[in-house]
Structure formats: C-alpha cells, structure tokens
C-alpha cells in the first residue's frame, strides 16, 4: 500500500508549514525530501510516522511499524550501543545476532559495549542508523541521517542501509543531493 499525503495542511502556532500539500509514495520507492531549513522536511517525516496528525487533509497508508533516524541520534545514555539497538527489537527472533551484525557492518564492531557518551557524533549517528534499519518495518524514515559522517563512511553506511532495506520504502530528508544520489532516491523539493 502506498503512502499518500492528500491536501495536507499543518502549522506550528501561526507558522504555516504546509497548506494543501500532496504527495504519493509507492511501495518500495525511495524519496529524498529536499528544501531549505524550515521547509517542513522533518514535519513531513513525523506525519509519515504518525507522530503528528495533519490539521487538514489526510495521510493514508502509514504502516504500523516505522524505522526512524531522527535529526539527533536520540540514544538512551545509560545503554550501550548494542543495547540501544536491542531495545527496539523486543520479541524479534535472533535480535542479538542481527544487531551485532548490523553494528559491525556499520564499522562499530569494537563499540558494541560503548555508552553513547563515549561515542563520537558520527558513531552515535551510525548506532541510530543501525537501530532504525534493524527495526522490522516496511518504511524507513531518515532525517539528515548521514550528517556528521565523512564521505567514505557515508558511502559505506548508505550501502549498508540499502542492502539491509531491500523492498522497504525509504523517505529521507536531506540538504545534500549527493546523499539523495547515494540512496538512489527520487528528489521531491519542498518550498516555503
């Protein structure tokens, strides 16, 4: 089932973010949302995740489970990198193996037992990526997911994400056309 934004309107107080916005995303499609800061990219991702409800119009086809990389890493500080990933895999078979493999593929094999405070910004980002990718869901939402990674790491991480998310719909908010290209995503530009 495709995700559809139909005439969606949304404001934060008096600040209008969307007015009559429509977009249809086919199952398994990869879409990169681009636009300047404040154009509503993150809001759109939250609407797609069901974290926000549209004030007018409707959003349909939002799956029950959604993997989300937020703009900030949002890791639980007292849990290790591995535990942060395992936290969202409650009841998933072979959760530990999956989480370990994914973190290792993302170059964090030596940091499995590290606490977020001891990780660099880029490492924390990759733990957040692993958490979202490992989460069994048909939709993956990436909000500036590769920010803070150097070019080589970014490429490698994008490859892991694509490899591990075959058949999944990916909706990414980004400022970088290169990042959109790495994901092989169709670009949708949002205006203010």
């Amino acid at each position: 089932m495709s995700i559809a934004f139909e005439n969606v309107g949304f404001s934060f107080g008096k600040k209008k973010v969307f007015d009559g916005f429509s977009l249809k995303i086919q199952d398994g499609a990869r879409v990169a949302l681009m636009g300047e800061s404040g154009s509503g990219k993150s809001t759109l991702l939250r609407l797609a995740a069901g974290l926000l409800a549209p004030q007018t119009g409707r959003v349909s086809g939002v799956p029950e489970r959604v993997g989300f990389v937020f703009q900030e890493s949002r890791l639980i500080p007292q849990l290790t990198a591995l535990e942060n990933v395992l936290l969202v895999l409650d009841g998933v078979p072979d959760a530990r193996e999956t989480a370990q493999a994914l973190l290792t593929e993302l170059g964090l094999g030596a940091e499995l037992d590290a606490l977020p405070a001891s990780l660099s910004g880029g490492m924390a980002r990759r733990v957040a990526l692993a958490r979202a990718v490992a989460y069994p869901s048909p939709l993956l939402l990436l909000d500036e997911a590769f920010t803070g990674l150097d070019e080589a790491t970014r490429r490698a991480a994008a490859e892991v994400v694509l490899h591990r998310s075959e058949g999944r719909t990916i909706l990414a908010a980004t400022h970088s056309e290169e990042e959109a290209a790495l994901l092989g995503a169709e670009i949708v530009r949002l205006g203010r």
């Binding site: 974290l51 489970r65 989300f68 937020f70 949002r74 958490r131």
Partner: peptide, 16 residues
Amino acid sequence: AGLLEMARAFRLRRSA
C-alpha cells in the same frame, strides 16, 4: 522529549 518521541516511533513498551 526527544527520547520519548523516539520511544513512540519505535512503539516501545510502557515498561521499557
């Protein structure tokens, strides 16, 4: 609030 939103997104159990 950010962690709580993350928990909502990943549908973490209330106990977790």
